[in-house]
Structure formats: structure tokens, C-alpha cells
């Protein structure tokens, strides 16, 4: 027999076993579907959270260049003085651009954004300060440089408070990082449970076919031959679970994308949600297959060699 014939035979045998395993799942549709669903949910949960978290990262990256400084002026500073102060600041070499906003403008902006107009009308005088927004020069990017600029501005007599807008962004990023890590741990735990679910399902399948395995070994089956269909069963569980996870994710995100778009609309953001990246379609089933095969391997390596004819 030539090498190519041997290879063809080997390949054909694997395809046969693969289809045989799929057929066995098909013959027990309810039990198989339950296992696949559990796997699907366990994979969809972390994947869905990852999608949300990824989008959050995209949003925060859009604001990457917004390291502007907001100066809240003292209320004792008049509008003219404030305007003049902003023009003075513009001459500083490490400031690229300034934007003055009078107390009156602050008030009307707040009225427009908050919708609390009636409440503001009832106040005796304007509680909001005038604001100067400062865009540092392009070469002022390091935290140290910005920090020293901030300190100098804060020391000016007209300034009540200087606030670096990066700060809340950094806070957002820390939160984001924490969430990311949390999701990673969740993903690891759920992957582990997928592994064990498949391992246990395969273990039960092996035990229920004990007498069949004994017969096969009596007529000369190697351990490798006996375990092959079980490994492919694990493969199918993982693959189908992964595909189901993707479908679940698509449906879930489709359902919540409306409200989320609305939420983002309120913040006046201009970005599009990126839900269904193509690699989700390939990565979820791939992860499923790896976990399925590994779980099955766990079961067959422990049980197949222990079942011997007697």
C-alpha cells in the first residue's frame, strides 16, 4: 500500500468517526441539546461582557487627546477681567488655545444640558463661575509637564480651582481595567466549567458504553481507536456550543443595542457600537472546540484504559 493510500485511508477513517460521533449526538437530541446549551451560555456570558468592555475602551480612547485643563474663576472676577485674563494666558508658550466662557454662558449651557431651568430660575443669583478651558501646547503631554502647568495656573489669584480633565478619564480607565480583569477571571472560571461539563458528559458516555468498549478491545481495538469517537464527541459539543454562544450573543446584543444607542445619544457621543466583529464568529467556536477536545481528553485518558474485558 502506498503512503498516499495509507494517508487517504487514515483521513477517511477520521471523517467517518467524526460523522459517527455527530450521528450519536443527533440520536439523543434532547440530552445533546441541553449539554450544548449549557456550554453555549457559559461561553456567551464572558464573550458578551468582553464586547461591552471593548466598546467602553473604544469610547475612552476617543477622548484620548482631551487632556485639557478647566479653570474655574473666582466669582469676584468680573466678566471683563476674566476675558482679559484668558487673553493673557494665551500668550504663555505652553498654552496653545484658550476658550473663555462667562458665568452667564455657563448658566445657559447648564440649563440646556440638565433641563433644570425652572429650578435655576428660582435661584436669586447665578451660582456658576466663569470658566476658561485651556488646551496645552502640543509638546506638553507628559504627566509631569501638565502637572506643573496645572500648579502654576492654580496659583494665579483669579483662579478658584484648576482641574485637569484627564483625571476622570484616568479614573474611567482604572475602572475599565478592573472590569477587564474581572471579566477575564470570569471567563477563565466559565471556561473551566465548560471543560468539566464536557469532561463529565464524556465520562458518562464512556461508562454507558462500557460493555461495547470491552467487546471492541476483545476484537483487537487499541485504546486510541476506542477513544477517538469520544474525542470527536467533545469536539462537536465544543463546536456546537461555540456556535450557539455566538447566536445567543447576537440576539442579546441586538436586543440591548437600541437602549444603548439611546443612552449614548444622551451623552452626545458620536461613535457607533461595534458589536459583531467577525472574529467572534471564528473565535467562539474555536475556543469551544479547544475546550471540548480538552475536556474529552481529560475523561478518556482517565477511563478508557481502565475498561478491560474480564
Amino acid at each position: 500500500m502506498s503512503l498516499s493510500t495509507i494517508m487517504t485511508n487514515y483521513f477517511l477513517r477520521h471523517v467517518q468517526v467524526m460523522l459517527f460521533s455527530l450521528g450519536q449526538l443527533w440520536r439523543q437530541p434532547v440530552a445533546s441539546l441541553m449539554t450544548v446549551t449549557v456550554i453555549g451560555i457559559a461561553l456567551a456570558l464572558p464573550a458578551g461582557l468582553f464586547v461591552l468592555q471593548q466598546n467602553m475602551t473604544t469610547v475612552s480612547e476617543q477622548w484620548d487627546d482631551s487632556n485639557q485643563i478647566t479653570l474655574f474663576l473666582k466669582t469676584t472676577v468680573s466678566q471683563v477681567e476674566g476675558k482679559q485674563f484668558s487673553l493673557d494666558l494665551k500668550k504663555w508658550p505652553n498654552i496653545a488655545q484658550v476658550q473663555f466662557q462667562s458665568a452667564q454662558q455657563s448658566l445657559s449651557e447648564f440649563r440646556q444640558l440638565s433641563g433644570l431651568g425652572d429650578l435655576l430660575d428660582s435661584l436669586p443669583n447665578n451660582p456658576l463661575p466663569a470658566v476658561i478651558i485651556i488646551y496645552p501646547a502640543e509638546d506638553i503631554v507628559s504627566p509631569d509637564a501638565i502637572g506643573s502647568l496645572l500648579a502654576r495656573l492654580e496659583a494665579m489669584p483669579q483662579v478658584d480651582q484648576a482641574q485637569l480633565d484627564m483625571e476622570w478619564l484616568q479614573r474611567l480607565r482604572s475602572i475599565n481595567k478592573t472590569i477587564h480583569r474581572g471579566i477575564s477571571i470570569l471567563a477563565i472560571l466559565l471556561s473551566l466549567s465548560v471543560l468539566l461539563i464536557i469532561g463529565n458528559t464524556i465520562r458518562l458516555a464512556i461508562l454507558s458504553r462500557q460493555s461495547e468498549i470491552k467487546v471492541m478491545k476483545l476484537v483487537g481495538a487499541t485504546d486510541r481507536f476506542v477513544r477517538r469517537p469520544f474525542l470527536y464527541t467533545g469536539f462537536w459539543y465544543g463546536l456546537l456550543g461555540g456556535i450557539l454562544a455566538w447566536i445567543t450573543l447576537m440576539i442579546t446584543l441586538g436586543v440591548i443595542s437600541g437602549p444603548i444607542d439611546e443612552l449614548i445619544g444622551h451623552y452626545g457621543s458620536n461613535f457607533d457600537l461595534q458589536w459583531f466583529s467577525v472574529n467572534m464568529l471564528t473565535s467562539l467556536p474555536s475556543i469551544g472546540v479547544v475546550l471540548g477536545a480538552a475536556g474529552a481528553w481529560l475523561a478518556v485518558s482517565r477511563h478508557i484504559h481502565m475498561i478491560e474485558p474480564n
Binding site: 478491545k217 476483545l218 476484537v219 483487537g220 481495538a221 487499541t222 485504546d223 481507536f225
Partner: peptide, 12 residues
Amino acid sequence: GKIPYYRRQIGL
């Protein structure tokens, strides 16, 4: 490991 191949020479 050789037992399976040995058993193929015997009909049971």
C-alpha cells in the same frame, strides 16, 4: 500496548 495487535490473530 501490543495486546490489541495480538488479539487480531485470534477469533473469539
